[in-house]
Amino acid sequence: MTMNDDLIVRTVTRRMIPFLLLFGAYILLHGHIGAGGGFQAGIIITSAIILAAIGGDLKEIRSALSCRTLFAIGAVGSVGITLVGILGILAGGWFFQYGSLPLPYSQEIIHLIAITCVEIGIGVAVFGMMFLIFIAIAGGEE
């Protein structure tokens, strides 16, 4: 696939992507008090990048984000989630019990930090895996 020739598609794509990314970030950080969360944010960010790939140059994006990198991104996200859970055990609580983390903040803030970390982990993992699936299906190589 070469650069998309249609001027309208190219322009709209270029204008849309920043807003989609911003919206993804909002959903990601807003997940613990409202509708949203890591998975939804990951999907929105992925759709932004997929839009860039469809409207722009698939090859260029694939060379920037190879399968290997994407798999590593997904794995890092998953390891991050597990790490937060295991920190709960190390701090003397149950698995995923954030309350017991020894941080110099109030309970509420600790919960907020931990949940945000988990959400970011989920978002990163979802982004990596979803885009990997997209490349696998659309990319020509398996």
């Binding site: 798999f71 597990t82 295991i86 698995f95």
Partner: peptide, 11 residues
Amino acid sequence: MIPISTAFISP
């Protein structure tokens, strides 16, 4: 969790 985290650390 040990097999699952190993699954993500090993790659």
